[in-house]
Deep mutational scan, measured.
Amino acid sequence: DVPLPAGWEMAKTSSGQRYFLNHIDQTTTWQDPR
């Protein structure tokens, strides 16, 4: 597995969808940043 870039975290919604948190610029995205 390729690790997420620095500052990123993967999370899941209550319905189980994956999303990605960027802690550096305080954004979220559905797109995997890798």
Rank of each mutant, 00 (worst) to 15 (best):
S14N: 12
G16C: 06
R18L: 11
T13A: 09
P3Q: 13
W8G: 02
W30L: 00
F20C: 01
H23R: 03
L21Q: 06
Q26K: 15
A11T: 07
T13S: 08
G16D: 07
P33T: 01
G7R: 08
H23N: 04
G16R: 07
T27P: 01
Y19S: 01
K12I: 08
Q31P: 01
R18C: 08
T28P: 00
F20I: 02
D32G: 05
N22Y: 03
D32Y: 09
F20S: 01
D1H: 12
R34P: 01
T28N: 02
V2G: 15
A11G: 08
P33S: 02
P5A: 07
W30S: 00
S14R: 14
D1G: 15
T13N: 07
P3R: 14
R18P: 14
N22H: 04
S14G: 12
Q26H: 09
R18S: 11
Q17H: 11
T13I: 07
F20Y: 12
P33R: 05
L21V: 10
M10V: 11
E9V: 04
T29R: 07
M10I: 08
W30R: 00
T27S: 10
Q17R: 14
S15P: 05
I24F: 09
R34H: 04
V2L: 15
W8C: 02
P33Q: 03
F20V: 03
K12E: 10
W8L: 03
T29K: 04
H23D: 00
Q17L: 08
P5T: 06
A6V: 11
D25A: 15
Q31E: 07
K12R: 11
F20L: 02
Q26P: 02
L4M: 12
S15T: 11
S15F: 13
W30G: 00
P5Q: 07
D25H: 14
T27A: 08
D25V: 12
N22K: 05
A6T: 13
V2I: 13
W30C: 01
P5S: 06
I24V: 10
W8S: 03
L21M: 09
S15Y: 15
Q26R: 15
D32H: 09
Q31K: 08
I24N: 14
L4V: 08
L21R: 09
G7V: 02
T27I: 09
D1A: 15
D32N: 08
S14C: 05
D1E: 14
Y19N: 02
Q17P: 04
E9D: 13
K12Q: 10
G7C: 07
I24L: 11
N22S: 08
E9Q: 12
K12N: 09
V2D: 15
I24M: 11
T29M: 05
A6P: 12
H23Y: 00
Q31R: 15
G16V: 02
E9K: 06
D32E: 05
P33L: 00
R34S: 04
L21P: 03
M10T: 11
D1V: 15
Q26L: 04
R34L: 02
E9A: 14
M10R: 10
P33A: 01
L4R: 04
L4Q: 05
Q26E: 05
S15C: 07
Y19D: 01
P3S: 14
A6D: 10
V2A: 14
N22I: 00
M10L: 10
G16S: 06
V2F: 13
S14T: 12
D32V: 09
T29P: 03
I24S: 10
S15A: 13
A11S: 10
P3L: 12
G7D: 05
A11V: 03
D1Y: 13
T13P: 03
K12T: 10
Y19H: 03
G16A: 05
N22T: 02
A11D: 06
W8R: 04
D32A: 10
D25N: 15
A11P: 02
P5R: 05
R34C: 03
Q17K: 04
G7A: 06
G7S: 06
H23P: 01
Y19C: 01
P5L: 06
T28I: 00
Y19F: 04
P3T: 13
N22D: 06
R34G: 03
A6S: 11
R18G: 06
Q31H: 14
T29A: 06
D25E: 14
T28S: 07
L4P: 05
S14I: 12
E9G: 15
T27N: 09
T28A: 00
T29S: 09
R18H: 12
D25Y: 12
P3A: 13
Q31L: 08
A6G: 10
I24T: 11
Q17E: 09
H23L: 00
M10K: 13
H23Q: 00
D1N: 13
D25G: 13
